[in-house]
Computed example of a mutant assay.
Amino acid sequence: MKQLNILVVEDERNILKVIKAYLEKEGYTIFTAEDGEKALEIFNNEEIHLIILDLMLPKLSGEKVCTTIRSKSNIPIIMLTAKVEEDNKIEGLSIGADDYVTKPFSPRELVSRVKALIRRSYNSSSPLAEKLVFNNGNLEIDINKMIVKKKKRNVELTSNEFKVLTALLTKPGQVFSREQLIEMAFGYEYEGFDRTIDTHIKNIRQKIEDDAKNPTYIITVYGVGYKFGGI
């Protein structure tokens, strides 16, 4: 894959410098912002592949930055914060974050999480093409930009829904079990239940199918799992 750009949003300069140094050592190109408004400016003007986002920011909170970005993109987001309570973690994940790291943290651990999230989001069993079109343009999927369009209109999938859809797209027509989809979409360390896939599939169908009860794209193979059936 081409050079990856990471946006680090952190108002504590010492922490920002450490994160930047560790990630640059791994070969990533790093953009930095010390407040929420600057973060959105960079996101809107640069090709960013992953965001490390502190919650406690001046001018615009990390939560607001996250919800704003998530309303237009499925880009991977790692929340970085001193808030350690479980409710804060749940809130961060519920507004669209893909992972959550609390301060103080090990820079090595953060780098490992970045690599794992990038691998799950971009590299793991990638679809055959970057832009896919099905049913004479009824459904369009841009893998790199994480954009889905139904009848030329943007469809807002969550990050996890996009990962499940991308997993199915690696081999259209092949049947995947729930366990296989979990491993492909979320990795070995995923702690959810396999039936979570059913919820994601239901939500995806409601967004991309003309008739969710009689799907054209995501087909249930009873007793086995799911396959992508678009042509």
Score class of each variant (00 low, 15 high):
Met1Pro: 15
Gln3Phe: 00
Val8Met: 04
Val8Thr: 13
Ile15Trp: 08
Leu16Arg: 15
Lys20Tyr: 01
Glu26Ala: 10
Gly27Ile: 08
Gly27Asp: 07
Tyr28Ile: 01
Phe31Ser: 10
Ala33His: 13
Ala33Asn: 14
Glu37Arg: 14
Leu40Phe: 05
Phe43Gln: 09
Phe43Met: 04
Phe43Leu: 02
Asn44Ser: 15
Asn44Val: 00
Asn45Tyr: 04
Glu46Met: 08
Glu47Arg: 15
His49Pro: 08
Ile51Arg: 08
Ile52Glu: 08
Asp54Ser: 05
Leu57Cys: 09
Pro58Phe: 00
Lys59Glu: 14
Thr67Val: 15
Thr68Glu: 15
Ile69Ala: 01
Ser71Asp: 14
Lys72Gln: 14
Ser73Thr: 11
Ile75Lys: 10
Leu80Trp: 07
Thr81Pro: 08
Ala82Ser: 15
Val84Ser: 12
Glu85Thr: 12
Asn88Phe: 14
Gly92Arg: 08
Leu93Val: 09
Ser94Gly: 02
Ser94Tyr: 01
Gly96Val: 01
Val101Asn: 02
Thr102Lys: 03
Thr102Trp: 01
Lys103Met: 07
Lys103Ile: 04
Lys103Ser: 06
Pro104Leu: 00
Phe105Ala: 04
Arg108Glu: 14
Leu110Gln: 06
Lys115Leu: 10
Ala116Asp: 14
Ser121Arg: 09
Ser125Arg: 12
Pro127Gln: 03
Pro127Ser: 02
Ala129Phe: 09
Lys131Val: 12
Asn135Asp: 14
Asn136Pro: 05
Ile141Leu: 02
Asp142Gln: 10
Asp142Val: 00
Ile143Asn: 09
Ile143Trp: 09
Ile143Phe: 04
Lys150Val: 09
Lys151Arg: 13
Val155Phe: 04
Glu156Met: 12
Asn160Pro: 01
Glu161Asn: 06
Glu161Ala: 02
Phe162Trp: 12
Leu165Ala: 03
Leu169Glu: 10
Thr170Ser: 14
Thr170Pro: 00
Lys171Cys: 00
Gly173Val: 12
Gln174Asn: 11
Gln174Pro: 06
Phe176Asp: 02
Ser177Gln: 06
Glu179Asp: 12
Leu181Ala: 03
Met184Leu: 15
Phe186Pro: 14
Phe186Asn: 10
Gly187Phe: 03
Glu191Phe: 00
Gly192Phe: 02
Gly192Tyr: 04
Phe193Val: 08
Asp194Gly: 00
Lys202Val: 02
Arg205Ala: 04
Arg205Lys: 15
Lys207Leu: 12
Ile208Cys: 03
Asp211Tyr: 09
Lys213Phe: 08
Ile218Gln: 13
Thr220Pro: 12
Val221Phe: 01
Gly223Pro: 07
Gly223Ser: 06
Gly225Lys: 11
Tyr226Met: 05
Tyr226Arg: 13
Lys227His: 09
Lys227Met: 11
Phe228Tyr: 13
Phe228Thr: 13
Gly229Cys: 07
